[in-house]
């Protein structure tokens, strides 16, 4: 079957979707692991809750950031 239409445009859409989708896999697992471990720690030592929460959010921010690098790369492919 012959290909019709703007292949360059199609590749851009594909790049954005693939980059965002694949980039979300790792951080998704990471965030789940991080929160799970924090809950485990709080269950073990409830008095540490405040400290652990702060650390969790910092770790969450750093882990989540990786998704946005993938998204950014997708945008770079899409718009540039």
């Amino acid at each position: 079957m012959a290909m019709e239409g703007n292949i360059e445009e199609a590749a851009k859409y594909l790049a954005l979707g693939t980059a965002t989708g694949l980039g979300a896999i790792g951080p998704g697992a990471g965030v789940g692991y991080l929160v799970g471990k924090t809950i485990e720690s709080v269950a073990r030592q409830p008095e540490m809750r405040g400290d652990l929460q702060g650390m969790m959010f910092l770790g969450l921010a750093l882990t989540e950031a990786i998704t946005f690098y993938a998204l950014l790369m997708g945008f770079v492919a899409f718009f540039l």
């Binding site: 921010a61 989540e64 950031a65 946005f68 690098y69 998204l71 950014l72």
Partner: peptide, 13 residues
Amino acid sequence: LLRLVSMSVRLFA
């Protein structure tokens, strides 16, 4: 430098 990206894009996205 990438903090600029991650912080702004997190809220925006």
